[in-house]
Amino acid sequence: MNRIIEIQELRRTFQVGSEQVHALKGISFFINEGEFVSIMGTSGSGKSTLLNILGCLDRPTSGEYFIDGTAASKRTKDELSTLRNRKIGFVFQSYNLLARTSALENVELPLLYNSAIPSKERRERALHALEQVGLQDRLHHMPNQLSGGQQQRVAIARALVNDPVILLADEATGNLDTRTSYEIMSLFQKLNAEGKTIAFVTHEPDIAIFTSRTVQLRDGHIVRDAPVTPKAAAESLAALPVDVDF
């Protein structure tokens, strides 16, 4: 199996005033292609730091990081940018869509930073990504004309459009109600079933149950890394009482 992510003895130390804060204290794990991993932990556990490094937004103090076979731990800022553009799809808690910009243009955005893609292909890929998340009839809607769940779907389409090796979701259901959260998790499960590798950072155990493996962080160490039998989000959705939204 293809190792999408491999980290070895990863450490990240921050200098806060005169004190050194060790956010990650030497962790190692890997994610294979097609896995749906939830990274769990309370605030201060180091999961955000780990996500930043996995997302090539930050560099480790020491240790190795390989993404899709490429060493990413000692890259320049520009090289990291290119890695993010080609290999990673981010989904954020607050969607981070550009305001007053249509769904289609929002989804096209990552491809604008890849000059190898001509505008016709860019448009086609954006349309395809929006189809994948079920928003083919909302192409020209502005974010403020979309519900929270729909906005998150646009954000997921944006993360998919560059065909990344891994989707990194950061509390992607944190701003959504239960029903919509389940809908989004169901979408992630569908994408995973289609072969997408997903790392899902969350602190909510009832969201993590939809993933197939849980990595638990505490105080900069991995305290648990176990496969779980994922619950189907569609079933949970069906089991919700109808009036739960009201």
Partner: peptide, 14 residues
């Protein structure tokens, strides 16, 4: 925030 997003999806500083 927009700048952060653009960077996260692969915009170089340049």
């Amino acid at each position: 925030k927009e700048i952060g997003l653009r960077m996260s999806i692969g915009a170089h500083n340049k």
